[in-house]
Simulated scan of single mutants.
Amino acid sequence: MTPTLFLESVHLSLPSRSGPVEILRGVHLSVEEGEVLALVGPSGSGKSSLISVAAGLEPPTAGRVCLLGEDLRRRSEDELARLRRGRVSLVFQSFHLIPTMTALDNVRVPMEVAGFKDAAARARAGLEEVGLGHRLRHYPGQLSGGERQRVAVARALAPDPQIVFADEPTGNLDSQTGEGVADRLIAIAREKGASLVLVTHDPVLARRGDRIVQMKDGVVVS
């Protein structure tokens, strides 16, 4: 079976005033269909950069990235966007909600842009899944931090993606609220059969994955 995500000898160097800085140094990684993988390691170890490269947001300096069975090398930005559309989702700790849109519209509009004919119904169902069926018409400024993050989770999972990348999705939340958000994220991903790559500093949350991958200094160490 082809893995949902496969990285082979991936390097990433970024320019700086003092010369190129090597962020990723020969990363090998695979994620199977439906697998929940926890990516851990100290700050600066390359976890977020790995997410960007794996999702096709940042081209690697060297190496090969295969996402959903497709080799990302020599793909244009438009081709990458078409590949991700409706199939790849991202959740960030900073929510990235549009403040002038209701919770329902924050979930609905990206799916309409992606061409989903049932975007409104999916958005409503997605918000109900995360316990926000009663907050559909509220704006982000009227929601708590935990509720805003649950909107972000609903937005990511409502299209039934094949893989979700979550970069410290509970990092801005208190421990109790964060645990509730993480519970829903993992449970819904498992229910939908989506692969989930979860970057976290929380060892309790990491242990809830099927596998823990540890990074240090731009390489996978265990």
Rank of each mutant, 00 (worst) to 15 (best):
H96R: 08
R73W: 11
L80H: 01
G133Q: 13
L132C: 10
I163L: 07
I98Y: 12
F95W: 06
V151W: 11
R150E: 04
T170F: 03
V204C: 07
A125R: 15
R150K: 14
D183F: 03
G133V: 13
P161T: 10
R75M: 13
A156Y: 01
L68C: 11
P110R: 04
P203S: 08
A125Y: 04
S89K: 13
V197N: 00
S195I: 13
D160F: 11
L127I: 08
V113W: 06
V164I: 13
I186R: 02
G133Y: 14
P140F: 01
L185V: 08
T100W: 09
R137F: 11
F165A: 00
G171K: 04
S175Y: 12
R150F: 07
Q162E: 15
V88F: 09
E129L: 15
V164C: 06
L80T: 01
A194V: 02
E77F: 08
H201K: 11
R190N: 14
A182I: 02
P161Y: 07
R82P: 07
R85A: 15
D105T: 08
E112P: 01
K192Q: 15
A154W: 08
E77R: 13
L97Y: 03
G180H: 10
F165Q: 00
G146N: 05
R82H: 14
N106T: 09
T200Q: 09
G133P: 11
A187R: 15
D174K: 14
E70I: 03
T100D: 13
E70P: 01
A158H: 14
